[in-house]
Amino acid sequence: MAMNGTITTWFKDKGFGFIKDENGDNRYFHVIKVANPDLIKKDAAVTFEPTTNNKGLSAYAVKVVPL
């Protein structure tokens, strides 16, 4: 089920960042999981599918909501 969130941290040079989800949890995401990576920036609103990996909470099918 899709969730909403906000990008809180973005490491462009490393290709990953973190999203604060609607429950207040931080989720890892990688640029290859983003549909529109050219719009990635700190504080951008996103929708995504929540999941977990071996390191904890993460996100896939991430879409940055255009302003």
Rank of each mutant, 00 (worst) to 15 (best):
M1C: 13
M1T: 15
M1W: 10
M1K: 14
M1E: 10
M1P: 12
M1A: 12
A2P: 14
A2N: 12
A2L: 14
A2D: 08
A2T: 15
A2H: 12
A2S: 13
M3K: 07
M3P: 03
M3Q: 05
M3A: 04
N4M: 12
N4G: 09
N4R: 14
N4L: 10
N4I: 09
G5T: 01
G5E: 00
G5R: 00
G5L: 03
G5K: 01
T6Q: 08
T6W: 14
T6M: 09
T6Y: 12
T6C: 12
T6V: 14
T6D: 03
T6E: 05
T6G: 02
I7S: 00
I7R: 01
T8N: 07
T8D: 07
T8H: 09
T8I: 12
T8S: 09
T8Y: 08
T8R: 10
T8G: 05
T9H: 15
T9F: 14
T9D: 11
T9V: 14
W10C: 03
W10E: 01
W10G: 01
W10M: 03
W10S: 01
W10D: 01
W10L: 04
W10R: 00
W10Y: 08
F11Q: 04
F11I: 07
F11G: 00
F11R: 05
F11N: 07
K12D: 07
K12I: 08
K12W: 08
K12E: 11
K12N: 08
K12H: 09
D13M: 10
D13L: 10
D13I: 09
D13N: 12
D13E: 11
K14F: 11
K14M: 09
K14R: 12
K14Y: 10
G15D: 05
G15Y: 05
G15W: 05
G15A: 06
G15Q: 08
G15K: 08
F16N: 02
F16K: 01
F16L: 03
F16D: 02
F16W: 11
F16E: 04
G17Q: 00
G17M: 02
G17V: 02
G17L: 02
G17F: 02
F18T: 06
F18L: 05
F18W: 10
F18N: 04
F18H: 03
F18P: 00
I19E: 00
I19M: 04
I19R: 00
I19S: 00
I19H: 00
I19W: 02
I19D: 00
I19F: 03
K20V: 09
K20A: 07
D21F: 02
D21I: 02
D21L: 03
D21V: 02
E22Q: 10
E22S: 09
E22V: 07
E22D: 07
N23C: 12
N23Y: 11
N23G: 05
N23S: 06
N23M: 10
G24S: 05
G24P: 01
G24C: 09
D25Q: 09
D25S: 08
D25P: 01
D25Y: 08
D25N: 09
D25W: 06
N26T: 14
N26E: 11
N26L: 15
N26S: 13
N26G: 05
N26A: 09
N26H: 12
R27W: 10
R27L: 04
R27D: 00
R27N: 02
R27G: 00
R27H: 04
R27P: 00
R27T: 01
R27A: 02
Y28I: 07
Y28M: 06
Y28A: 03
Y28V: 05
Y28C: 06
F29K: 00
F29N: 00
F29A: 00
F29S: 00
F29H: 00
F29E: 00
H30G: 06
H30R: 07
H30P: 06
H30K: 06
H30E: 11
H30Y: 08
H30W: 06
H30T: 12
V31Q: 09
V31P: 02
V31F: 09
V31K: 14
V31S: 07
V31E: 07
I32H: 15
I32M: 15
I32Y: 14
I32C: 15
I32E: 14
I32A: 15
I32F: 14
I32V: 12
K33D: 15
K33Q: 15
K33Y: 15
K33E: 15
V34M: 04
V34I: 05
V34T: 06
V34E: 03
V34K: 02
V34S: 05
V34P: 04
V34R: 03
V34N: 04
V34F: 04
V34G: 04
A35Q: 14
A35S: 12
A35P: 03
A35N: 08
A35V: 15
A35H: 12
A35E: 13
A35M: 15
A35K: 14
N36I: 04
N36D: 06
N36T: 07
N36L: 05
P37H: 05
P37R: 08
P37E: 04
P37Q: 05
P37I: 05
P37Y: 05
D38S: 11
D38R: 11
D38C: 13
L39H: 10
L39M: 13
L39E: 10
L39R: 09
L39V: 06
L39I: 07
L39T: 06
L39Q: 13
L39K: 11
L39A: 10
L39P: 03
I40V: 09
I40L: 13
I40R: 01
I40W: 04
I40K: 00
K41W: 07
K41H: 11
K41V: 10
K41F: 08
K41Y: 08
K41A: 12
K41Q: 11
K41I: 08
K41G: 06
K42F: 06
K42T: 08
K42S: 06
K42C: 10
K42L: 13
K42Y: 06
K42V: 15
D43E: 08
D43H: 14
D43R: 11
D43Y: 14
D43G: 15
D43V: 03
D43S: 10
A44S: 07
A44I: 06
A44H: 04
A44M: 09
A44Q: 06
A44F: 05
A44L: 06
A45E: 08
A45Y: 12
A45W: 12
A45T: 11
A45N: 10
A45D: 08
A45G: 07
A45K: 13
V46M: 01
V46W: 01
V46D: 01
V46E: 00
V46S: 02
V46P: 00
V46Q: 01
V46A: 02
V46H: 01
V46R: 01
T47N: 07
T47D: 03
T47A: 05
F48P: 00
F48H: 00
F48I: 01
F48V: 00
F48K: 00
F48A: 00
F48S: 00
F48R: 01
E49K: 15
E49C: 15
E49Q: 15
E49H: 15
E49Y: 15
E49S: 14
E49G: 06
E49A: 12
P50E: 03
P50H: 03
P50I: 07
P50V: 04
P50M: 04
P50R: 03
P50W: 03
P50A: 07
P50C: 05
P50G: 05
T51P: 03
T51K: 10
T51A: 14
T51E: 12
T51H: 14
T52K: 13
T52Y: 12
T52L: 09
T52Q: 13
T52C: 14
T52E: 12
T52M: 12
T52H: 11
T52P: 05
N53A: 08
N53P: 04
N53D: 09
N53R: 10
N53F: 07
N53M: 08
N53S: 13
N54F: 10
N54E: 13
N54K: 14
N54I: 11
N54Y: 10
N54M: 11
N54L: 12
N54D: 12
N54C: 11
K55C: 13
K55G: 09
K55A: 08
K55N: 10
K55D: 07
K55Y: 15
K55E: 07
K55S: 08
K55R: 14
G56P: 04
G56V: 07
G56T: 07
G56Q: 07
G56K: 08
G56W: 09
L57G: 04
L57S: 04
L57T: 03
L57A: 05
L57M: 07
L57D: 04
L57R: 06
S58P: 03
S58Y: 08
S58E: 10
S58M: 10
A59S: 06
A59C: 13
A59F: 03
A59N: 02
Y60L: 14
Y60Q: 15
Y60T: 15
Y60A: 14
Y60N: 15
A61L: 10
A61Q: 10
A61I: 05
A61Y: 09
A61P: 02
A61M: 11
A61K: 12
A61T: 05
A61E: 10
V62Q: 01
V62W: 01
V62K: 00
V62D: 02
K63L: 11
K63W: 13
K63G: 04
K63V: 14
K63N: 10
V64R: 00
V64I: 11
V64Q: 00
V64W: 02
V64A: 03
V64C: 04
V65N: 08
V65K: 10
V65R: 08
V65A: 07
V65P: 02
V65E: 09
V65W: 11
V65H: 11
P66F: 12
P66C: 12
P66T: 14
P66V: 14
P66E: 14
P66I: 13
P66M: 12
P66L: 12
P66A: 13
L67T: 14
L67C: 13
L67W: 12
L67D: 13
